[in-house]
């Protein structure tokens, strides 16, 4: 591989079906159903996807769900707040491990 993360891989996503069409069909059917209007609106789901995209640091997903959030009716303020939710959870996930550090340090210290 000469390099990783090519932008053209996003529109080429459906070609993943080549090696296993049936599993791809099931995945994309499921994927479409997940993002349909339900108890959560399509806009709310797009914002959740945008936040998760930042948490898993997927550049394809960030591009896709920036566009999708706009198209589903979110604005920049809502999208930025969604990213901060991911940031807060990632930061909090690190920080809450600090309690383990704290307990260990307390036990080992005078």
């Amino acid at each position: 591989m000469s390099d990783y993360y090519k932008a053209e891989h996003l529109p080429s996503f459906p070609t993943i079906a080549e090696g296993q069409p049936e599993l791809a069909r099931k995945f994309f059917d499921y994927y479409g159903a997940v993002f349909a209007d339900g108890a959560l609106s399509a806009r709310e789901k797009a914002l959740i996807a945008l936040a998760v995209a930042h948490a898993v640091q997927c550049p394809y997903c960030i591009d896709a769900y920036t566009g999708d959030s706009l198209a589903k009716g979110a604005d920049l303020e809502q999208m930025t707040e969604a990213v901060h939710v991911a940031v807060a959870i990632r930061g909090g996930a690190s920080l809450v491990h600090g309690v383990q550090m704290l307990e260990h340090a307390r036990k080992a210290s005078m």
Binding site: D37, S41, A42, R43, G67, L70, A71, K72, G73
Partner: peptide, 19 residues
């Protein structure tokens, strides 16, 4: 009447109306 503020298609009319 809603229309996109940029180079993308509008969202679902029914979904947006409820929101």
């Amino acid at each position: 009447v809603t229309n996109p503020t940029g180079a993308y298609l509008p969202g679902s009319q029914g979904s947006l109306e409820r929101e």
